[in-house]
Amino acid sequence: MHVAQQQTLRNRMPLPSFEETVPLMITFAPNWPLRTVIFRVVGTALVIGAAAMWLLPGSGVDADAALMKLGVSLFFFLCGLALLMIHHQDNQPDAYFDPIRREVRVLQKNNRGRPQTILRRSYDSLGAARFNEHYLEICDVDGSILMRLPIPSADIRQALRSQLSGFVTISA
Rank of each mutant, 00 (worst) to 15 (best):
M1W: 07
H2F: 14
V3T: 09
V3N: 14
A4R: 15
Q7I: 15
Q7M: 12
Q7G: 10
Q7W: 12
L9I: 05
M13V: 13
P14K: 01
P16N: 07
S17A: 11
E20A: 14
F28V: 03
F28I: 02
P30G: 00
P33W: 02
R35M: 03
T36P: 05
V37M: 04
I38L: 11
R40K: 13
G43T: 04
T44W: 11
T44G: 08
T44M: 07
I48R: 00
G49T: 08
A50C: 04
A50T: 01
A52F: 11
M53S: 05
W54K: 13
L56I: 11
V61P: 02
D62T: 00
D64L: 03
L70Y: 04
S73L: 06
L74E: 13
F75L: 09
C79N: 13
C79Y: 03
C79I: 08
G80M: 02
A82L: 09
L83Q: 02
L83M: 06
I86C: 12
Q89E: 10
D90A: 12
N91T: 12
Q92N: 09
D94H: 08
A95L: 06
A95W: 01
Y96W: 03
D98K: 05
I100K: 07
R102C: 15
V104D: 05
K109A: 10
K109S: 08
N110H: 09
G113N: 07
P115S: 09
I118F: 12
S122N: 09
G127K: 02
A129L: 04
F131H: 08
N132A: 11
Y135W: 10
Y135C: 15
L136F: 11
L136M: 10
I138F: 07
D140F: 15
D140P: 11
V141A: 12
V141C: 10
D142N: 08
I145F: 02
I145G: 01
M147W: 04
P152L: 14
D155P: 01
I156S: 04
A159L: 10
L160W: 03
R161H: 12
L164G: 00
S165E: 04
S171Q: 14
